[in-house]
Design a protein around this nucleic acid. Structure first.
Length: 735
DNA sequence: GAGCACTGC
C-alpha cells in the first residue's frame, strides 16, 4: 500500500461555496475563530459517547442563582459561535418564511442556538405554543436538552426538557422540547395536528432515516392543511439542501459555516483486494511516519474488525520492538460488543502508545471518540436491503457515498488538524454516489404504511412522501397489513389496525400481542415480545467460551431446547425476573448470572422497561383484558400452553415458516427457497423439527432464519384457517 | 452446517 503523496486538501469550505445556487443565502464568515480548547467543549450535534451519561447530579443541588450565573458564563461562549453572529439575519428568515432550510456545519452551534433564538422570540412576542426539536438518536436529544437548559439558566423540565422513550423530563412549563423523531411520530399518531407546537425543528435531516422522512411528509401535509401557521426549520449538516427546499415550495436555504479543522486526504494509487490487510498496513505506516495521535479505522462489519484486532495484537509488539515507534493498542467497536468493552475505546491512552480503533459505521455518527487525529477508511459498509417480493432482507457489503466518506474523514478534524487515508483510488471516489440511498427506499414499509392509515391517509401512492418508496413497496405493505387484519378489504384501517398502530412494536409483533390477548396468554407473550424488542440481548460468546456458554444456556432451558428460541427467551426471562429478583442482593446476583450466560445486563434491564410499557399499553388498549392476564406467569414446561403461545406467533409470522425436508434441510413455505437455521439459534443443532417459524429471515452468505421455533405442520393449517375466518368476518362486518 | 450494519417507539 502506498499513500498518494500528491494528495489534495479536502476543502469543504471551497466546495460548498462553489455549490451556492440562486436560492441560497450564504453567510460570509470572516470570523473563523481558531477554536480554543476551553471555548467549545460541548458537542454541537449532540453526538456523545452513549456510555457516559452527561447529566450530573450537581444539577439537583444548585440554586436558582447559580443556574443563572452559569448561564451568563455560558453566554460568552455562545456569542462566539458562528450561528450566534448571524442571529438577526437567521431570525429574519425564519420569521418571514413558513419553512426555512438551514445548513450548519459541525461546530456551527445550530442544534443548541437556533431553538433558543426561536424561544426568545416566542417570549418577546408573548406568543403561545412551544418548540419541538427532533433528533434521530436518544442520546443526542438528552445531551442537547441538558446543555441548552444550562445555557438557558433553568433545570431540565422547566422551560427546556426532553422526551425520549422511557424518559420524559418535560412538564407543562416546558417551551423547548428536544425529542427523538420516533416520539414526534407517536405524538402525530395520538394528536394529529400537533397543536401544542408553534415551531418544529427537524435536526440532522440529512441522515434521512425512515422516521425523519416520514415526519417531513406529515409536516408538509400539516402546513398545507390544518396548520398553515406552523413554522418549520429543517436543519442539516451537508449540502442536501436543495431537495428539502424544493419539497417545501422552494423554501430559502441558509448556510452557516462551521468550525472544524482541515483534514488532509490521501488515496491509494492502486485499488486493494484485501481490505483488512490494507487497513493494517496503513496503520503501521501512520505509526511509523506520523506524530502521536489516535487512529480510527472504518471497516464494514464485525468479522473484519475481529480479524484486524487479532492481527494487530499479534504484530504490535514486534513492530515497536523493531523501531522506536509508539506501541499500537487495538480496540474493536461495534454495536453487538458488550457495553463494558465498548467503553474501553473512550479512555485516553497514556504513555508512548497509540490507540487504534477498528469500528463499524457506529463511529460515523452515533459515537464520538476524542483524540482521533487519523482516519483510515475502507470505503465499505454493510447495509440491509429489503426485498419486497421475497419478504426477506439481504445484508450487503457496499461502497459508501461521498457524503459518508466526508463524514468519516471529518472524524479526524474535531480537535485539531488531521489526516484521512482512503483505501481506494481518487478516481473511484469521484465515481461514488454523492449521497447514500435513503433508508426508506430500501426498507420494509409495512410500519410506515400502518402509520399513514392510522393518520387517515387514503391515497398512499400520492401522499406527500418526502421520498416515495415506490408502488411495489407500498402495495406489499398494504397486503401485509391486510393479512395481519389491520386493514379490511377496502383498505380501511380496522379496530385491530388502530390498536396495532399504537403499540410500540413492528406490526407483526403487535398482531401477535393482540392475538395473545384474545386467547388468554398475553402475559407470557408480552415477556417474549419484550425480549425480542431488545437488540443484542444474547451476546455472541467469544470462540473459546462458546461451547461452554451454549451448554449452560441449554441446561437452563428445558422447554427451549425442544421448542426453540422464543420459548428459551421466556425461560431465561422467568429465571431473571422471578428467581433472581427476590433475594436481598438481587442486582449483583442478576449481573453474575447474565455474565455467565453471556447475556447483556443492560439488555435485560431494557427488557423490563419494554415489558412495563407494553403492559400499560395493553391495559389501555384491550378493554377485554382479564384479571388473570394482569398477573405475570412463568412458562414451565406445559406443552399445551407452549403450543398456544407459538400459535399466537404464527398469526403474525405465518409467512416466516419453513418445512423440514427428508435430508434435514428446510424450505420456506412461501417460495420454496432453502433456508438454514442461524448458528445463534437453540435449534441449530436440533435435527428433528417438522417445521420451523422464525421472526427474521436474512440473506448473507445464504438464507438464515433467526429466532427460530419448532412448529407442527398441522398448526399451519389451523392458523391459516383462522386467518381466513378473520378475513371473512371482517368482510361481513364492513357490509 | 458455523455467524448481523445502524437506529427508533
Amino acid at each position: 500500500m502506498a499513500a498518494n503523496s500528491n494528495s489534495r486538501v479536502a476543502s469543504n469550505h471551497t466546495s460548498k461555496k462553489q455549490k451556492v445556487r440562486r436560492n441560497i443565502h450564504p453567510f460570509t464568515n470572516n470570523t473563523r475563530i481558531k477554536r480554543a480548547s476551553k471555548i467549545v467543549k460541548f458537542n454541537d450535534s449532540g453526538e456523545g459517547d452513549h456510555v457516559s451519561d452527561q447529566r450530573s447530579n450537581k444539577e439537583n443541588v444548585v440554586t436558582y442563582k447559580s443556574l443563572k450565573s452559569r448561564a451568563s458564563d455560558l453566554l460568552k461562549m455562545r456569542e462566539t459561535l458562528p450561528v450566534y453572529q448571524h442571529k438577526r439575519e437567521i431570525m429574519s428568515y425564519i420569521e418571514s418564511n413558513p419553512v426555512t432550510v438551514l445548513i450548519g456545519e459541525t461546530g456551527s452551534g445550530k442544534s443548541t442556538q437556533i431553538p433558543q433564538f426561536v424561544l426568545e422570540k416566542l417570549y418577546d412576542t408573548k406568543k403561545h405554543g412551544s418548540i419541538a426539536v427532533t433528533q434521530p438518536r436518544r442520546v443526542a436529544a438528552i445531551n442537547l436538552a441538558t446543555r441548552v437548559a444550562q445555557e438557558h439558566g433553568c433545570k431540565l423540565g422547566e422551560q427546556v426538557g426532553y422526551s425520549v422513550r422511557f424518559d420524559n423530563t418535560t412538564t407543562t412549563r416546558t417551551r423547548l422540547k428536544y425529542l427523538t423523531d420516533g416520539m414526534l411520530l407517536r405524538e402525530l399518531m395520538m394528536n394529529n395536528d400537533l397543536r401544542e407546537y408553534s415551531v418544529i425543528v427537524i435536526d440532522e435531516a440529512h441522515e434521512r432515516t425512515v422516521l425523519t422522512d416520514l415526519i417531513l411528509g406529515f409536516l408538509k401535509s400539516l402546513i398545507q392543511g390544518p396548520r398553515p401557521d406552523l413554522r418549520i426549520i429543517v436543519m442539516s449538516a451537508t449540502l442536501q439542501a436543495e431537495k428539502f427546499s424544493e419539497f417545501f415550495n422552494n423554501a430559502p436555504i441558509l448556510f452557516v459555516e462551521g468550525r472544524k479543522f482541515d483534514v488532509k486526504q490521501y488515496y491509494l494509487k492502486a485499488p486493494t483486494d484485501d481490505i483488512v490487510d490494507a487497513v493494517i498496513r496503513c496503520c503501521i505506516q501512520i505509526n511509523q511516519g506520523e506524530e502521536l495521535g489516535d487512529i480510527l479505522c472504518f471497516l464494514p462489519g464485525q468479522e473484519e474488525i475481529d480479524k484486524a484486532v487479532t492481527i494487530m495484537e499479534k504484530i504490535a509488539k514486534y513492530v515497536s520492538d523493531e523501531a522506536p515507534v509508539p506501541l499500537i493498542v487495538p480496540y474493536p467497536l461495534y454495536a453487538a460488543l458488550p457495553p463494558v468493552q465498548q467503553s474501553l475505546v473512550f479512555a485516553p491512552i497514556k504513555g508512548f502508545k497509540r490507540k487504534v480503533v477498528f469500528s463499524t459505521n457506529i463511529a460515523e455518527t452515533s459515537v464520538t471518540i476524542s483524540g482521533v487525529k487519523f482516519v483510515v477508511d475502507s470505503g465499505l459498509r454493510k447495509v440491509k436491503v429489503w426485498r419486497h417480493q421475497l419478504g426477506l432482507a439481504t445484508l450487503l457489503t457496499v461502497p459508501i457515498s461521498q457524503a459518508s466518506a466526508m463524514q468519516r474523514s471529518g472524524r479526524a478534524g474535531r480537535e485539531s488538524e488531521g489526516k484521512s487515508f482512503r483505501l481506494y483510488c481518487e478516481s473511484d471516489y469521484v465515481k461514488l454516489p454523492k449521497q447514500s440511498e435513503p433508508e426508506i427506499a430500501r426498507s420494509d414499509v409495512t410500519s410506515p404504511v400502518l402509520m399513514l392509515k392510522r393518520y387517515g391517509v387514503d391515497d398512499l401512492l400520492n401522499w406527500t412522501w418526502f421520498e416515495n418508496p415506490g408502488k411495489e413497496a407500498i402495495v406489499m405493505g398494504l397486503q401485509e397489513l391486510y393479512e395481519l387484519g389491520a386493514l379490511d378489504t377496502r383498505g380501511k384501517i380496522t379496530k385491530r389496525g388502530q390498536q396495532m398502530a399504537l403499540l410500540p412494536l413492528q406490526p407483526h409483533l403487535s398482531s401477535v400481542l393482540i392475538k395473545a390477548s384474545e386467547v388468554g396468554c398475553l402475559s407470557q407473550v408480552i415477556d417474549i415480545v419484550s425480549c425480542l424488542s431488545v437488540e443484542n440481548l444474547l451476546l455472541n460468546p467469544s470462540p473459546e467460551e462458546r461451547d461452554e456458554v451454549n451448554e449452560r444456556r441449554l441446561s437452563l432451558c428445558n422447554a427451549g431446547k425442544r421448542y426453540g428460541d422464543l420459548i428459551m427467551l421466556k425461560e431465561l426471562f422467568d429465571i431473571y425476573f422471578y428467581e433472581l429478583g427476590k433475594s436481598q442482593d438481587a442486582s449483583s446476583e442478576r449481573n453474575d448470572w447474565c455474565k455467565g450466560l453471556c447475556i447483556s445486563i443492560r439488555g435485560f434491564k431494557n427488557v423490563i422497561r419494554v415489558r412495563d410499557q407494553l403492559r400499560v399499553y395493553c391495559k389501555r388498549l384491550f378493554s377485554s383484558i382479564s384479571e388473570e392476564d394482569e398477573e405475570s406467569k412463568k412458562i414451565g414446561e406445559d406443552g399445551e400452553l407452549i403450543s398456544k403461545i407459538l400459535k399466537c406467533f404464527l398469526t403474525g409470522f405465518i409467512k416466516n415458516t419453513a418445512i423440514g425436508m427428508p435430508d434435514r434441510s428446510y424450505r420456506t413455505v412461501s417460495t420454496g427457497e432453502p433456508i438454514s437455521i442461524h448458528p445463534s439459534s437453540m435449534l441449530f443443532m436440533n435435527k428433528s423439527c417438522p417445521g420451523i417459524m422464525y421472526t427474521e429471515y436474512v440473506f448473507t452468505t445464504k438464507g438464515y432464519a433467526r429466532n427460530v421455533s419448532r412448529i407442527e405442520l398441522s398448526w399451519l393449517q389451523e392458523v391459516v384457517t383462522n386467518a381466513a375466518a378473520v378475513a371473512k368476518q371482517k368482510v361481513s362486518d364492513s357490509k
